[in-house]
């Protein structure tokens, strides 16, 4: 039996990129001097400026947050300081992070329903604001302007009803709109409704 060995050939080709072998490239001196010039320029500029333009020394200087900044949640109050929330569960339904836990209970008065437990796990919260969008009662808001607090234990990041209501203020929003809603609707036509 005859065996022939064939030289292995590959069809793959390697494209060789020529690199210019100039003296300047070899010595790298030009690049080094250029680089030093750039850093030196920045150094002297910044020394003359005393304070870099972009840095904000946080605790002393603060950025002004935009009006629609989303901070920690808060639960709004009724006029009698009870919670506005009626435990409709729209916010946990809308929440993409599943960070809201509500257990409903019956109230003795005309409000009929309120949350017995209202907990937000601020570590899970992705600060998307969908809960606020979903709320039909102006009960939950994120306009506190507060940051998440530093916590030692994960449980501490779960804010309960008391914590959330502590930040709340009274809201007198009327479900279905203010009495003069018709004029406003005329001036600002809502594209969702005919």
């Amino acid at each position: 039996m005859e065996t022939t060995f064939r030289k292995r050939t590959s069809k793959a080709t390697v494209k060789v990129v020529p690199r210019p072998e100039t003296l300047n490239k070899e010595l790298m001196l030009g690049g080094i001097i250029q680089g030093l010039a750039v850093t030196m320029r920045h150094f002297f500029q910044n020394v003359a400026r005393e304070k870099p333009e972009v840095t904000i020394n946080y605790p002393e200087e603060r950025l002004k947050y935009p009006l629609r900044n989303r901070g920690l949640h808060r639960l709004m109050h009724r006029e009698d300081d009870s919670v506005r929330c009626v435990a409709c569960m729209c916010c946990p339904t809308a929440c993409p992070a599943h960070c809201i836990t509500i257990v409903a209970e019956e109230t003795g008065n005309g409000n009929e329903k309120r949350p017995a437990i209202f907990e937000i796990d601020e570590l899970r919260c992705i600060v998307c604001g969908l809960c606020v969008e979903a709320c039909p009662c102006d009960a939950i808001r994120m306009d506190t302007g507060e940051h998440m607090h530093v916590v030692d234990r994960r449980d501490d990041a779960i804010l309960g009803k008391v914590d959330l209501m502590k930040r709340g203020i009274s809201s007198t929003a009327v479900q279905g709109g203010e009495p003069n809603w018709q004029e406003r609707v005329k001036t600002v036509p809502d594209p969702r409704f005919r």
């Binding site: 409709c88 279905g176 009495p179 809603w181 005919r194």
Partner: peptide, 29 residues
């Protein structure tokens, strides 16, 4: 229209028909 409180919300015929057929603001003042 207290759907947030109402337990039927989500499986309510009235709610469903309103969304399907009407979707208008109330004219009752």
């Amino acid at each position: 229209v207290d759907c947030p409180i109402c337990d039927k919300a989500g499986e309510c015929t009235l709610q469903k028909l309103y969304v399907e057929w009407d979707s208008a603001h109330a004219r009752m003042d």
